[in-house]
Design a binder for these strands. Structure first.
Lengths: 330, 330
DNA sequence: TTGTAAGCGTTATCAC
DNA sequence: GTGATAACGCTTACAA
């Protein structure tokens, strides 16, 4: 691959002039500039960003760390970040962790070695995170998404607890009393824990005993057998799920078990993934602005990088009514 | 940030020795090595990959270009690639194009300037792609996913045409005759076109006239009004969809329109996304191994980078029966 | 086993 | 306006 020096030679100018022709075109006489461009063209010159990065000490790369891309919440978030980063001329280096804290640390270390200009990350549990502890020592601009419990960082998220509390109240308003909640591996998700607290709060406010959280082995798939047992044991009429995939999986399982949704049992999800609206019954869900979470996080990071102070933000959620909840029947 | 020279000085050795302590530990006496590590530790040294990349002319970064991350097919594929790349010590630089050929070219140029060691890409239409034309001139290892029509490249995909032909035959076997097909913007997807050809082939083989492809404005969402018109006009009893999101959207719309699926109308999707299995009725779909497509593409790329010749591959599909198709009723 | 020194392809700081 | 030259932080012959 040709370099700037060859271009300069072919154009009959110095390397400095060739460089200027690209970066500060008006500081170069037009004739010279054209010679440089012609030479560049004929040699198939392509600027080497790595060299530039080393020299300028700035990579224009943003490191992105996410638990998984198999959940649309995160891939939509990533899509939102990608668009915004591109607008600002930044590229994305993306890594996933599968909710594994050791991978979180390894990924972070890698990104730091790559000298990314900033980070947008979502960790499994911000309160017990070696990775965040390390990051705190670093002067690198960083924004967390979905991790409001990381109080030492700038975070972008919705109020998970209040959101789930709101959803629970909605069910209570519909006359439900025996309401249960399921989640994926809860140790791996501070979000799920906050959502459970929201459920508990709403139940207690209504003078009801919250049920223990039913924990599934997988973040996004129901164990139909255990679900059936849970329903029977507590005679549930409504089910809250800590995310939409779990909720959709629950609805499918329930229907196969012979339950009518929402006539016999109401189901509520969390996240508001696009698919939830398409299926029938449309999923009732706490909608968080998925792309916007990513886009705003990236926008905030861009500010930080430019030295502009930027606040943490709690974005609004909405409860999408859908068709998967109905008044309780007695 | 500290550099190797400072570490070396603190350890009382030369820069070369410090470097070797990291890259070829056994070529350094243990005592020296420990001095280096200790110095490195106390200074908080972190290798600068950018400098290494410039020096070694190898970034250990793979460029990834995908149409969108909003379709699980692609995000799963990316997930598969990410795992494999990480295993091999490569990082991923990810960009999306929204099926826009101009963005494809821009993204490619960027990735080339970043001097990625290889590329895994999925383009909108491999037969008309400025981006691939450019790439052909480059000596860079590259693998295409989902673009079997790119004959000058190594491609990993399923046989889209045969797969859709198979699905269509399945419907024919069930007694369906009036079978229609819908797709997203077909100009933007060579895959959709291949799938349509598969449908046409099966229909003709059965002595039936294929219907024109019904093109939706969006890749992943149905226009319910137009769908209804289509159904009525041709009195369809079965509907093929060029992807699963479209199919799920179609099922939802149909149910809201009062159709029973599959009793009145059978629906078949394409891709085999995980969600399709969860909903009820479970989506009948041509399943392609999404993660594997990504993983194998990345594996092939790793081979290419090491100079090992690697063939294009057509992976097997399976038809998942699901619950969204049934025998035709007369 | 360790040190010296050149070089990767830029950008930036000087002079002219 | 343009040119010479020194970094940026690392790897790697080659020497010692």
């Amino acid at each position: 691959m040709t370099d700037l020096l060859s271009v300069a030679r072919l154009a009959g100018v110095s390397r400095a002039t060739a460089a200027r022709a690209f970066s500060e075109p008006d500081k170069v006489r037009e004739a010279t500039r054209n010679k440089v461009f012609a030479a560049s063209e004929s040699l198939g010159f392509r600027p080497n960003y790595v060299a530039r990065q080393l020299r300028t000490q700035s990579t224009r790369i943003i490191g992105v760390m996410l638990p998984t891309l198999s959940n649309p919440v995160f891939s939509e978030q990533l899509q939102g970040m990608e668009h915004l980063a591109r607008e600002h001329g930044y590229a994305l280096m993306v890594a996933t962790t599968d909710y594994d804290t050791r991978r979180e640390s390894a990924v972070l270390e890698n990104l730091l070695r790559q000298r990314v200009d900033g980070l947008v990350l979502t960790v499994a549990d911000a309160r017990h995170s070696a990775c965040l502890a390390l990051l705190e020592q670093e002067p690198l601009p960083a924004v967390l998404v979905h991790n409001p419990s990381a109080t030492n960082f700038i975070t972008i998220s919705v109020d998970n607890q209040r959101a789930m509390q709101h959803a629970t109240q909605q069910l209570l308003t519909l006359g439900h009393i025996r309401i249960g909640m399921i989640a994926g591996p809860v140790q791996q998700s501070d979000r799920a824990q906050l959502r459970y607290q929201g459920y508990c709060g709403a139940m207690r406010d209504a003078g009801l005993m919250p049920l223990p959280l039913m924990e599934m082995a997988h973040h996004t798939r129901i164990d139909a057998g255990r679900l059936a047992a849970l329903l029977a044991e507590h005679a549930l009429t409504a089910l809250l799920c800590s995310n939409d995939l779990l909720a959709l999986s629950a609805i499918g399982s329930l229907q196969r078990l012979g339950y009518a949704v929402p006539e016999q049992i109401s189901v509520v999800g969390f996240d508001g993934i696009a698919l939830g609206e398409m299926v029938c019954p449309a999923l009732c869900s706490v909608v968080q602005p998925q792309r916007e979470l990513g886009a705003i996080a990236m926008e905030s990071l861009m500010n930080l990088i430019q030295g502009v102070e930027t606040p943490s933000r709690i974005l609004d959620f909405t409860l999408r009514r859908g068709e998967s909840i109905a008044p309780a029947r007695f």
